[in-house]
Design a protein around this nucleic acid. Structure first.
Lengths: 137, 137
DNA sequence: TATCAACCTACTAAACAAGTAGGAATAGTG
DNA sequence: CACTATTCCTACTTGTTTAGTAGGTTGATA
């Protein structure tokens, strides 16, 4: 019942990119230094955000990353689903998992389903812009 | 971001005890057979429920377990907190964890705190009685 | 051509999950 | 008393996941 460092670091990177937004690209080396996270580890986390169009990476000197959209349009839910795989509390709700054979008689399934819905709704309702601005919830 | 088998099995045991309630004690062997869960594994999960007064265990022939309270007074939240340790989404919110040194400037802490509150509120609002009766949520 | 950056793959150490194994303590029953 | 059925307790095991590290390749700019 935990969000791993992958998801938490991805979030911190996105917030950092929003806060230090310029017209150019920001090298991950700078973000890693500011956030005190291993650069090498961040390099392993970012590709999924690039592939799914949340950030753009440019190689070479003067390169780096920048947000693909304005921070107001980046939701926490989207970032966590990409980096954590899924926000489902039980495997039965994971779309990629095999179907549970007890699902028709399971007394707890609807509870998990509703919690899953609630979780997505909560995190989809928060944007990177709000976090960067320190909006209190 | 998952509830482990410990929590899920504990819940199924509690529901089973509620459904097969008698004036005596129910051997875990029966519950394990009905729920198709390893008896040995359940024996490892139950002590925490006993210690915290959710169920009573009686050893020896004719012994077994029974709920300490009526199912209407057993909440899912209570059971999950005992078996999963804590429902906190990040370590910073775990009371037993060391205090995070970034907590004063952390842009995400309030988001996690609110989610934690929401999670507890959701699961505290569901009782074993409701699950046993198949109340749809 | 040198430098700085993203990108890629393989490896590793530690922790955790999900159980198994083997018995000790306890309480009724013939 | 011996037998049986049950909880209770500790240690072990096996596989997976987490949180990285190592060592490079590719690509852009100056």
């Amino acid at each position: 019942m935990m969000i791993s460092t992958r998801g938490r670091y991805a979030l911190r990177v996105m917030i950092d990119l929003a806060e230090h937004k310029t017209d150019g690209y920001i090298p991950m080396k700078e973000v890693a230094a500011r956030q005190e996270i291993s650069l090498k580890y961040l390099e392993r986390i970012l590709p999924v955000l690039v592939k799914n169009g949340l950030v753009e990476g440019v190689q070479g000197k003067g390169g780096g990353y920048r947000l693909s959209r304005v921070p107001e349009e980046c939701t926490v839910g989207e970032i966590l689903r990409l980096t954590e795989g899924n926000l489902a509390p039980v495997a039965c709700l994971d779309c990629n998992a095999e179907v549970c054979e007890k699902k028709d008689t399971c007394k707890t399934l609807s509870m998990w389903t509703e919690f899953h819905r609630l979780t997505n709704q909560y995190f989809d309702g928060i944007t990177i812009a709000e976090l960067a601005n320190g909006k209190s919830l």
